[in-house]
């Protein structure tokens, strides 16, 4: 069995538990293993980055080095922010042996630069056919707006596997799960997640714009692949509704949860009950859709 190193990052052990849960479910179904990086630390996110270059690098490289020490050649990072940080750190130290030495000194252990960093959606894309084959309950009739945000579209040095202006990885996945992928305008607009707490006013405005665009495109739900986007679009949704005097009621669902649903898994087991904006409407729509192969297994809510 293929086994990847796994860097959940702080969110997946907290507010994004259901992402963690549903990723593990989907990997098991694909026959892929995930093993957490030993004693991992926070990647520092934008806060370290905006304060100190060496700190940002050191925090990221320690994670990579921990993986390298355990012989993990590839690590999967589901959080788009962690993914971007780790991959960027890899790029920076790869180009500069002096810097690598200096950072190795700060973290007190060597890093040779031999750990590849990948995002979950990349792995799903690679296994798209097998995913499609594992679908037992196609998401027929469901209109999904795939939201990539900034970090799963840019920069080219990190996301070299999709188009920066019109990424399609998640859309392809959603289509292979039987849902309808919407062509919409705000796929790659920034949601302002890093201001969710500090400048809520800005975050709420940006969230409103994105939700409004998805609504206009006729979405039943928004698919995401980043805990920060999910949290921001989900938790700030009611504030955005108040600000813009409208209702969106758009569940923000992880791509891994959609995979689980299409594989006929229990909604609760996938953590779909954990969102602020409930997914009841989506689930209702799904159970109303005709079930192929004559299976009549209602989806539990």
């Amino acid at each position: 069995m293929m086994e990847y190193g796994y860097y959940p990052g702080c969110s997946l052990h907290g507010t994004a538990k259901e992402f963690d849960l549903s990723i593990k479910e989907s990997f098991t179904s694909l026959g892929l293993g995930l093993k957490e990086v030993e004693d991992w630390n926070c990647c520092g996110a934008s806060s370290a980055h905006e304060t100190s270059e060496e700190l940002a690098l050191a925090l990221a490289v320690r994670i990579l080095s921990q993986a390298e020490k355990a012989g993990q050649k590839t690590i999967v990072a589901p959080c788009a922010a962690c993914y971007s940080r780790l991959k960027m750190a890899n790029v920076e130290v790869a180009h500069d042996a002096g810097l690598r030495k200096r950072i190795s000194h700060i973290i007190g252990q060597d890093y040779q630069g031999n750990v590849a960093v990948r995002h979950v959606t990349e792995i799903y894309k690679e296994n798209k056919d097998r995913l499609a084959a594992s679908v037992t309950k196609p998401l027929a009739g469901l209109k999904i707006a795939s939201y990539y945000g900034c970090l799963l579209a840019r920069p080219k040095a990190v996301v070299d596997w999709d188009d920066a202006e019109n990424p399609t990885t998640m859309d392809e996945l959603v289509t292979s799960l039987g849902a309808q992928a919407l062509d919409w305008s705000h796929k790659t607009e920034c949601c302002g997640a890093s201001f969710s707490i500090s400048r809520g006013d800005i975050a709420v405005r940006l969230v409103g714009d994105i939700l409004g665009a998805a609504k206009l495109a006729g979405a039943d739900a928004i698919a995401v692949a980043c805990p920060l986007c999910q949290a921001n679009l989900d938790m700030r949704q009611s504030a955005a509704e108040r600000r813009n005097k409208t209702t969106y009621k758009l569940p923000i669902i992880y791509i891994s949860q959609l995979i689980g649903l299409a594989q006929g898994k229990d909604a609760k087991a996938l953590g779909l009950d954990k969102h602020m904006v409930g997914a009841e409407k989506v689930l209702e729509k799904l159970s109303a859709a005709p079930i192929p192969h004559g299976e009549k297994k209602p989806v539990a809510v």
Partner: peptide
């Protein structure tokens, strides 16, 4: 703690 103590702002 050491990482925080030793890191410089600029590379």
């Amino acid at each position: 703690k050491k990482i925080f103590a030793e890191s410089q702002r600029f590379v």
